[in-house]
């Protein structure tokens, strides 16, 4: 059997890591210490697994690992971080919507259009100040398949795609936690909604078009997640008087 040693090495990885390799998905709630173990397992991937087919999805290293590191800083040791990541991409059948066919004109025979709805990341973290942070990232991709015929009767089919992304960050405060309006509004791309109740909920939503590049993805998620935290005053640093 080929890749026997690599397969054996993968079986020694953390179960969440194995899920990202085989299914390219992960849905689990763990305390920070256990997430550290997952990240330590993921760190060994590149040196252990050389087969292209079994490499980690790009967003694992670009988004998932840094996000786990950031959230582990804010969650108490007994707290929990729940992550549902579906890194299979928008082309899987479950994420694809119905297609529509439009008649063409001239050399264009027809145009087929469909949309893919890809909610690839959902995070829930119980922060150490008692609030709960929820993040979701959803890609919406429009596909257009254009069928053309040139004057010599040669057929050409071309598919184009256009992705937009929606990032939401929702922070549910502890009962009685104070809320303070920040001095400046968020950028135009970020909308904010406050729901005053026993537990105030601060939601920020950004619709990005086109979807950010892989290397900018984390920065955008954290940027949207910033808004709910601007609405609460910082933890007081109590100064002792001698």
């Amino acid at each position: 059997m080929f890749w026997r040693k690599t397969r054996a090495a993968i079986e020694r990885f953390h179960p969440v890591h194995q899920g990202l390799i085989w299914q390219r998905t992960a849905s689990v709630t763990l305390p920070p210490a256990e997430w550290d173990a997952v990240v330590a397992s993921l760190a060994r991937h590149a040196e252990t697994v050389k087969r292209r087919k079994w490499r980690l999805p790009d967003r694992t290293v670009a988004v998932l690992v840094p996000l786990i590191r950031v959230l582990c800083e804010d969650v108490a040791p007994k707290g929990a971080i729940g992550i549902t990541a579906d890194l299979r991409g928008p082309k899987v059948p479950e994420k694809t919507g119905p297609s529509r066919k439009f008649p063409g004109r001239g050399r264009v025979r027809n145009i087929t259009e469909w949309f893919a709805h890809d909610p690839w990341l959902a995070v829930r973290a119980e922060l150490r100040d008692g609030s709960v942070l929820e993040l979701t990232v959803t890609d919406r991709v429009r596909y257009r398949r254009i069928h053309k015929v040139n004057p010599r009767g040669k057929h050409k089919v071309k598919t184009k795609s256009k992705a937009v992304q929606r990032i939401t960050a929702r922070r549910t405060l502890q009962p009685g936690q104070e809320v303070r309006r920040p001095g400046s509004p968020p950028p135009r791309s970020v909308g904010v909604r406050i729901k005053s109740a026993k537990r105030t909920v601060i939601s920020a939503t950004a619709k990005l078009g086109p979807a950010p590049a892989e290397q900018d993805q984390l920065q955008w998620i954290l940027a949207v997640a910033t808004e709910p935290f601007r609405w609460t005053p910082p933890a007081a640093t109590v100064r002792r008087t001698a």
Partner: peptide
């Protein structure tokens, strides 16, 4: 300085 572990002390809405 005081050393609070993530303590929270809001000052009003």
């Amino acid at each position: 300085d005081g050393f609070d572990v993530g303590g929270y002390d809001g000052d009003g809405f």
